[in-house]
Design a protein around this nucleic acid. Structure first.
Length: 472
RNA sequence: GCGCCCUUCGUCUAUCGGUUAGGACGGCACCCUUUCACGGUGCAGAGAGGGGUUCGACUCCCCUAGGGCGUACCA
């Protein structure tokens, strides 16, 4: 066997954990697990202006929620600045890099001129071979990599195949800023090397960067890791994923009532496939995952399918697990009445859940459906619901609704007692009630000796009724 | 502008030169159900366009079109 696989996820903490980033992390994680290797986490916080501690926490929480556990302690890139500078200087010593004294203004005009003459806007190498003695006074130089002037760089990518870049299109980019801090290009290479990363799996927006990074690897004579540049997620219109189209943090999905196992399953199928398999567990995914299964084209985010997958996992879930998620979700969203109601009626909610699960696509819908249990009485009953029942049973039903709605307590015995009393007042006898919460009120006579029993579930605007028949 | 990447039903995808181009979501119809769901069955729905290569192309090559990414002392 070859050396063990080490992958990494390297987000920059400048906001929430983007859903696209989460998918990238998922693939890196799945590959590492499949290969029985390690999955490392590196926080790329070298941009001191935009990095925040809150964003770092959001990354930890997002990954944890999804169940993507990283191995060891996360690496904070900024803390490695000295090491980055050290490598920059080593490159200098090796003659693979040089000081550049250009001012930002000079560089700007350089780009403009290049663009005006139809050339790629790249650095012209004016300090490449100049002697430092010619340096202007008082200017802190940057260090630029000495990119090959001719030839080509080939990125041998697991997803994109062999991608060839002519070096003439790659300029002498900056690796160390004038303030001595490293640029992304340098920091990534040094860290990936030092962390022993064997497989870089990241978004294909980094494909061009890969060529630049290879120049650094070559300059240090380091081995270039395997690479897999996965296509980005697009919005429904094929363009960049916008916020209204789902470009949200994973926390937002949790708040919308999606289960982590559903997110994993859905995200996995976005750009990756294992034959025709659609629904699978994380263990199955780990077992099946391979870089060959990754697609080359960008995938569009589709809420409808996510909902479907989520509905599947809600149906599959154990009631006590869902109950915990419901309580936590209500708490997180500040839905105090729901939170209190759920907590105070745990037994009833747990009993009701099997009936509720097939009717909900999200945890939020589950909470809405459970509200009948702790809703404030009397309930407002909508006319259409009453109209559903035909003929002379109308009166019975509306009467029943008001009786039930006026109940202070919707415990099963209370409901049963109320319904029984009602039935008797209409000259009917209620038979044995089999399932708690399927109990309720008499609507009409279905056939001699059999009459309708129903329970109302849900909020006024979303009345769902579960029918049952009881023999008198 | 320049460079690179991508392109199968509306969406996610299978196909790795020879298939009636398969599945899933969504849509529609029907069944189940005294509601709503769940479940079941069926229907409609795709190889961007044009050239090649080949006995044979969705599959390989080229061009065009469309889309995406990159082009910073951001990551």
């Amino acid at each position: 066997m070859t050396k063990p696989v080490v992958t990494r996820f390297a987000p920059s903490p400048t906001g929430y954990l983007h859903i696209g980033s989460a998918r990238t992390a998922l693939f890196s994680w799945a590959y590492a697990r499949n290969m029985q290797g390690k999955f490392l986490l590196r926080i790329e916080d070298t941009d001191r202006e935009r990095s925040t501690e809150g964003a770092v926490q959001a990354i930890y929480e997002g990954l944890s929620w999804l169940g993507l556990k990283w191995d060891g302690e996360p690496t904070l890139q900024f803390s490695r600045a000295a090491r980055h500078a050290e490598v920059a200087n080593e490159l200098l010593a090796r003659g693979q890099a040089y000081y550049c004294y250009c001012s930002p203004e000079e560089l700007a005009t350089m780009r403009e001129d290049a663009r005006a003459s139809g050339k790629p806007p790249r650095y012209n190498g004016m300090w490449r071979d100049r002697d430092p003695s010619e340096a202007p006074q008082g200017v802190m130089p940057v260090i630029r990599i000495k990119a090959p002037l001719a030839g080509e760089i080939t990125v041998d990518d697991h997803v994109q195949g062999k991608v060839v870049f002519k070096t003439e299109n790659l300029d002498d980019f900056i690796i160390l800023r004038s303030d001595g801090t490293p640029t992304y290009m340098l920091a990534v290479v040094v860290d990936d090397h030092d962390m022993g990363v064997t497989h870089i799996i990241r978004g294909d927006d980094h494909l061009t960067n890969a060529a630049r990074q290879i120049i650094i690897y070559n300059g240090m004579e380091w081995e270039v890791p395997d690479m897999a540049h996965i296509p980005l997620i697009h919005g429904p219109d094929g363009a960049k994923l916008s916020k209204r189209h789902g470009a949200l943090g994973v926390g937002a999905y949790r708040q919308m009532g999606y289960l982590p196992e559903a997110m994993i399953n859905y995200l996995a199928r976005l750009g990756w496939s294992h034959g025709d398999d659609e629904l699978f567990s994380v263990d199955q995914m780990i077992d099946w995952f391979s870089l060959e299964g990754l697609n080359k084209g960008a995938a569009r985010f589709d809420f409808a399918k996510l909902e479907n997958v989520n509905g599947h996992y809600i149906r599959q879930a154990k009631p006590d697990y869902l109950y915990g998620v419901m309580v936590e979700t209500a708490r997180e969203l500040g839905r105090d009445r729901d939170h209190a109601g759920l907590v105070a009626n745990q037994t009833t909610v747990l009993a009701a859940l099997p009936e509720l699960q097939p009717r909900a696509k999200t945890v939020l819908e589950l909470i809405d459906l459970a509200q009948f249990i702790y809703a404030v009485r009397p309930l407002a009953v909508d006319a259409p619901a009453a109209e559903h029942v035909a003929g002379d049973a109308q009166a019975v039903l509306s009467n029943a609704l008001s009786v039930l709605g006026a109940l202070p307590d919707w415990s099963v015995p209370a409901i049963e007692a109320a319904v029984r009393g009602l039935a008797e007042s209409h000259g009917l006898k209620l038979g044995k009630v089999a399932q708690p919460l399927r109990v309720a009120l008499t609507g009409r006579t279905v056939s001699p000796g059999v009459f309708e029993v129903m329970v109302l579930i849900g909020k006024e605007e979303s009345l769902a009724r579960i029918g049952d028949q009881v023999k008198a």
